[in-house]
Design a protein around this nucleic acid. Structure first.
Length: 270
DNA sequence: ATAATAACCTGAGGGC
DNA sequence: TGCCCTCAGGTTATTA
């Protein structure tokens, strides 16, 4: 479900947690992609929430003596509720606050994660090897050119690899490659410095615009207050296979690349 | 080390 | 209405 813009939208929707205190954690289902550690309920109880951050597609909720690492997987959502609401199917975790509010974690497919860590969350094995944030200065054309040398993998798979750069999922990989005029199937190493500069520029731009729009809502994504994202109206290729290219009117081609639907224009992308 | 595939899950939608 | 198939915004583990 969520790529970087949707996770960032979620983060902004839950910053109101800061300064509030945990009354208790209610775990109805612990069979997630990475299960919450044993004893998480006891460890988090009565702690004050200090900050709400994001690293790639991970949300980091920092408390007095430790942090929550939350990943939404494909179908995860977080909702900040002002008071008690009866839980529905797939409402796996409630973080109850001492003022009566609660943060509810919902995830039908259970590909997500809700983990407690005592130490620095950035040193957790899931986070420690991650590539640069795409909106930080460390993600530059020069960087992409350097790390893609001798890499035969398709450039689309390459930019979706979180060890190269975080936050780029299937929607925005398709969109950025179209905007940069680069075919998704090209070997990463075949990009020259100008290609890399263009691609980095378009990745950054499309992510920034999507954040501004509140993310992309295709089926079920919404911000923590329930408001959907509006970036779907801006998508140029994703979900448009067989339809005319918005730049040149040629029919967009849809194929499958590494189990992922890939859409591109053979006239605009080379 | 790198690249390709399988695996983890549930739900929605299409064809019959 | 039901059954079977495919697909879905992610990531790791396993295999060559």
């Amino acid at each position: 479900m969520p790529e970087l813009p949707e996770v960032e939208t979620t983060r902004r929707g839950i910053v109101a947690l800061i300064g509030r205190r945990v009354k208790r954690l209610l775990l109805r289902e612990r069979r997630l992609r990475w299960p919450p550690g044993r004893g998480i309920e006891k460890r988090i109880q009565h702690q004050c929430i200090k900050n709400v951050e994001r690293r790639g597609k991970y949300l980091l909720i920092r408390l007095d003596r430790g942090s929550l690492i939350i990943h939404l997987g494909m179908s995860g959502r977080l909702h900040l509720l002002p008071g008690y609401v009866p839980p529905r199917k797939h409402d796996h975790i409630d973080l109850e606050l001492d003022d009566g509010g609660m943060l509810r974690y919902t995830d039908p497919r259970r590909f997500g994660a809700f983990i407690w860590v005592d130490g620095d969350p950035l040193l957790h094995p899931l986070l420690v090897g991650l590539g640069p944030e795409p909106l930080d200065a460390g993600f530059s054309g020069a960087y992409l050119y350097r790390v893609s040398r001798n890499r035969k993998a398709p450039i689309k798979a390459f930019i979706m690899d979180s060890h190269m750069v975080v936050g780029v999922g299937n929607i925005y990989a398709n969109e950025a490659l179209f905007r940069a005029g680069i075919l998704p199937s090209r070997a990463a190493a075949s990009l020259d410095p100008a290609d890399c500069r263009r691609l980095v520029k378009e990745i950054r731009q499309v992510l920034r615009k999507a954040i501004r729009a509140g993310g992309t809502t295709l089926r079920d994504f919404s911000a923590a207050d329930g408001v959907p994202g509006y970036f779907a109206q801006t998508l140029l290729v994703y979900g448009r296979g067989g339809e005319p290219c918005r730049k040149c009117s040629a029919t967009l081609v849809e194929s499958r690349q590494g189990q992922r639907t890939t859409v591109f224009c053979t006239r605009c992308q080379h």
